[in-house]
Design a protein around this nucleic acid. Structure first.
Lengths: 145, 145
DNA sequence: GACATTTTGTTCGTATACAAATGGAATTTG
DNA sequence: CAAATTCCATTTGTATACGAACAAAATGTC
């Protein structure tokens, strides 16, 4: 050991053993797989488009809550999807603050065309685990959200 | 179901069941805990400072590899740590491309002062799991990196 | 009906994250 | 030794991510 630590904590701390570090690395690997297998959209863009196709017309903030993005983040994602013509906005007659987001024909078509790739990405990400391990892992991971 | 999908994949796709989505949400919760319990440094800044204290003087890219950040990312992190006086750079005499990064006295002191909080953050993140589940989860998570 | 609160969407600032390109330096190899 | 390759650090551009502050609109309460 190159240095002496007065406090035990600094000695006991190993970055490689911390959940946060492992979560970050697992996410990195997943996102790398995603980019390779589905270069058309980013992971967050696909998630947003998928949820929008599932939910139908939704306000921007509500959509953000559904995909776990705050208002500032979902705005950027929605803007980029709109710029690509995959999503469109229509004003809400009843609430003048709100505009509904919905998938365009092109957006829906892209989603239907790429959904199988998204499922394959999940499979590839979990490939190092066997079926039992996958179920165990997802159960535990769900508890940490 | 509001829409008909020609392709089965779009029907089978559920965002909430995908590893990527769960990893993102677990990371969000972890980072939220981190910010609350250790507001002095970001998660990545702490990881970098910790690794630097552990390794001693290290080139910027080598440090980046140790904490799983690419060259562009580690540069920003290192710059911000240097701007705060927690890390300093000294040129390498042998290799004129390289400059060694090392923790300053202040950086090391901050690390030693906060290492226990970092361990507590890991504990809090894993709090929804019991001891056996933690071991299982970390074992499986490690396989996905 | 008046006022406080909440909700919606936006903007700003800061901090990761990574692809791609660059230039300079060191190393490998033929 | 010269050429090809690799390595180091930097820069640019794009895309999350979130805190904080804001105005306009809707809702709740008294």
């Amino acid at each position: 050991m190159q240095y002496e630590f007065k406090d035990k904590a600094a000695n006991a701390y190993r970055l490689e053993e911390q959940v946060g570090f492992l979560l970050r690395r697992a996410s990195q690997r997943h996102l790398s797989i995603f980019t390779q297998m589905l270069p058309d959209l980013t992971s967050t863009q696909f998630a947003t488009l998928a949820k929008l196709c599932e939910m139908g017309p939704t306000s921007q903030n509500a959509l953000g809550r559904a995909v776990a993005m705050d208002a500032a983040t979902i705005k950027g994602v929605a803007d980029r999807l709109r710029a690509r013509g995959l999503v469109m906005a229509t004003p809400d007659e009843e609430d003048r603050r709100r505009h509904y987001l919905s998938a365009t024909e092109e957006g829906r078509a892209l989603y239907e065309r790429t959904a199988h790739a998204a499922l394959a990405i999940t499979g590839e990400t979990l490939a190092p685990l066997d079926a039992d391990e996958i179920e165990t892992f997802l159960t535990l991971l769900r508890k940490l959200c």
